[in-house]
Design a binder for these strands. Structure first.
Lengths: 229, 229
DNA sequence: ATATACCGTGTAGATATTACACTAAGTAAT
DNA sequence: ATTACTTAGTGTAATATCTACACGGTATAT
């Protein structure tokens, strides 16, 4: 017999699509739900918005409560409001995305027990997702594909010091296609936003590559690169 | 003495930013409010979302009720949710935009008496707007500026048959800068989305220009024009 | 006939994009 | 020390795109 769930009276929520890059793979942050509906399903971190907080504040709070992650700049990308998207009533959800530096240090520890656990999952191997979260994820992925072509957000996924090959890998994984090494380097360096650290990669069993850092002072030069009239 | 307004319990709304082009000017559709708060102020057409309609449906309904306009394809562009944005409580607003062909035929006739009247106003001469509508408008304008560079939406503002000079005017007004005539034509024609109608403009007191029509079949070629890696 | 106002066109130089392959340098194994 | 292995790092030529720039053509109005 089907349990009857109560109607919810807060009518909007936030869902977060967080991307990370690790071991050459693009990952997304998912939680395992601990409550009905969709108990034990995987879902994007998301919850109801409080009355007294802005959407941006709410997104930060919800992410923190469900995953333990703090201090991430997320940006809104779409609002989902189909009538049947939530079984407990009309819930409109504002979706946020961000790209994150995955360090081994940051453990994922949900604070609220609304989430059993949080994990970074390879976007190629997503489990079935709760609600319309597959759709939200798909649109989030499209969003970063478009953005990565216009602004240098790929850096946000890498450690502070990175090699050009690692950077190229990020582009290849997100765009889903191989790029030419020489052309990629030529173009990337021409933007003048990378600082050569005169330092080599460590701990690799082959010729070590030069490390670069993203140079914030020069960032401005890249804004506004679009097709022009 | 300040009148006390009731709290509203529906917690989200839609606001529409509709752009039109007429007599060489970019215009936006505003209504004059007939209810508190902001009675007698100008505002973007917007109202509360019903329980049983999707956001897209709601946007279409609200636009129709407040302005009489129907059958416009609007697209969501941002959701505004600051705590203090509405004096009667926490109201989150999903903003939509569209670009419209202004024909002399379509009269603006509000159905709901929530709007006294609706008018196309030159974006250079906006009156003070209710709520945070100036902010919503500004972001809508930014949105079409970005989009016009990537996709041929400028056609949507012109009559079915138009001249290249008219088309160039639309770009110039939206982008806020002069463009080179020869380069503009070369580029626009290279996209292969314009059909030469072998027909001339009528009723002008100078050499008549060739009329073109936007060719939907070829539209696909323009999608995906972005900076490339 | 003449003045007026907009239409419609080409080119050269600069810049950006694409396609393409080999040597150099470090590590690991023997 | 030699060798095998793996990734780093580099240049050029052909093509396409972008930019800047000026004048004769044609319809209308007087």
């Amino acid at each position: 017999m089907k349990e009857v769930l109560p109607q919810l009276n807060s009518t909007f929520s936030i869902d977060c699509v967080l991307f990370g890059f690790d071991e050459g793979e693009l990952k997304v942050l998912l939680i395992e739900r601990n409550e009905e509906p969709f108990k034990d399903w995987w879902a994007l971190p998301g919850y109801l918005v409080n009355e007294n907080e802005s959407l941006d504040q709410s997104a930060a709070r919800i992410l923190h409560e469900l995953t333990g992650i703090e201090n991430v700049y997320m940006e809104q990308f779409y609002t989902f409001g189909d009538v049947g998207r939530h079984p407990q009533g009309r819930i409109i959800s504002v979706a946020y995305y961000a790209m994150l530096r995955l360090g081994g240090d940051k453990a994922l520890k949900p604070i609220s027990n609304y989430a059993k656990q949080a994990h970074w999952i390879n976007v190629q191997e997503l489990p079935p997702l709760a609600f319309d979260h597959q759709k939200i994820f798909d649109q989030g992925l499209e969003k970063i594909k478009r953005r990565i072509k216009h602004q240098p957000i790929a850096f946000e996924l890498l450690p502070e010091k990175f090699t050009l090959t690692q950077l190229q890998n990020v582009y290849e994984v997100i765009l889903g296609k191989k790029l030419d090494k020489r052309n990629f380097r030529k173009k990337m360096l021409s933007f003048n936003v990378l600082k050569d650290l005169n330092e080599k990669q460590k701990g690799v069993s082959f010729r070590a590559a030069t490390l670069y850092r993203f140079d914030k002072r020069k960032y401005g030069k890249l804004f506004g690169k679009e097709i022009s009239f």
